[in-house]
Amino acid sequence: MGAGFTGLVAALTLARGGASVIVVDTVEPGFGASGRNGGQVIPGLKDDPDTLDRVFGEATTAFAGGTADLVFSLIDELGIDCDPVRGGWIQASVKHLHLPRLESRMAQWRARGAAVEMLDPAGMAAATGGRGFVGGWIDRRGGSVHPLAYARGLARAALQAGAEIFRDAEAVSIKRGNGGWVLGFASGARLTADQVVIATNGYTGRLWPGLKATVIPANSIQVATAPLPDDLRARILPGRPVVSDSRRIANYFRIGPEGRLMMGGRGAFREPRDAADYRRIEAALASFYPEAARLPMGFRWAGRVAMTRDHLPHIHQPSAGVTMALGYNGRGVALASAMGRAIGAHLLDGANPLPLALSAIKPMPVHGLHPLYATAMIEAYRVRDMLER
């Protein structure tokens, strides 16, 4: 269930392996954050590789390091027209205090063979054309895609492999029956399956008890300028890397289709209503790129990402025949794609390991109040970000 990156890559993998596959989505493929994210293809997890080795083992670290490779290999193999650019990912910093941590992270990935390097202020200025960066590092495994085009390309590939995809299919119940699982839909339709994969991430509802309360659905808001004129295009992100800064409440940006400068960041928990809801992110764009900020804003949009308490994704199998994966914490293009591949391979052959140990479903206390306490936490993080040098 869920026709985002996880569900679609799992469906493609299963269909290619000879399974009979049906994908259902409440709206349509790519409707959620899979189609409305910033298009940044970032390898790794939030934790550094040494930590991943210690807590999960080297296989998990290798999985995390290869997630971007998987995305670009799928695009090449399937011929998906989604503006793929492998210009690298830059983790930039406006804080001197953050640089030792970034250098340690870079060195850990370098020790594992990744094409990475530190960037000093001059290197950051040349690579980004932006103001205020005191340093950072670049991971050349990363890049960008047009996320909705990528999702639709995955959907076409899954269909060609023999999967069926149904849109406007809201699942409202799941129970055992007929030797498997019976899904009930708002339309009154019923579907019986031996295996069910629930991959709804930031749009998770109440279908499975407690699952919704394991993540905080946060709006990631974004803007895109009018196409940059040639002089700015030559200076702003000339190699087309994707960039995110190292603050707790980070901004991220890249050059998008038609040469537009795109910037995103954390928004309110309610859905944006008008241009006023994007003022903070437009102010951030102006601080980094004042010349580009004078251009009209061509687009404003939002998508709901799923944040977890430990900043890690989770895989649950609460009952035989049911697998769930969610909580990509803003790295969903690469991570969700790789998770879908791993789940599909595991369901075809249990000897294929899952990339993370299974975890129990642990709802957050008073989850219904998350807009209040998460907003308070975000504002506290903003204050800490401002106080650091």
Rank of each mutant, 00 (worst) to 15 (best):
A268E: 15
G330Y: 10
A11R: 04
T67A: 10
V145I: 15
V242F: 03
G180M: 06
A158G: 02
R247M: 09
L74K: 12
S287K: 01
I249A: 00
L207K: 04
L347K: 01
T323G: 02
T323A: 08
P100W: 01
G340S: 04
V215L: 12
N251A: 10
H346S: 03
A334N: 10
D385S: 02
A293Y: 00
R270M: 09
T51D: 13
M262I: 15
R190E: 15
E77V: 01
V41P: 04
T6N: 07
P209Y: 03
A293N: 09
I198Q: 03
Y203F: 04
R141N: 12
T308Y: 03
E28Q: 13
T323N: 03
G210L: 07
V134D: 05
V197Y: 09
A224G: 06
G340M: 13
G132F: 05
S73R: 14
A157M: 06
G35K: 00
H314D: 15
G298N: 04
A275I: 08
G188M: 04
E28P: 00
V41T: 09
A189E: 06
R140F: 13
S246A: 15
V242T: 15
A107W: 02
P29T: 13
A302V: 05
P147Q: 01
G179A: 14
S244W: 03
L52N: 09
D120T: 12
F166Y: 11
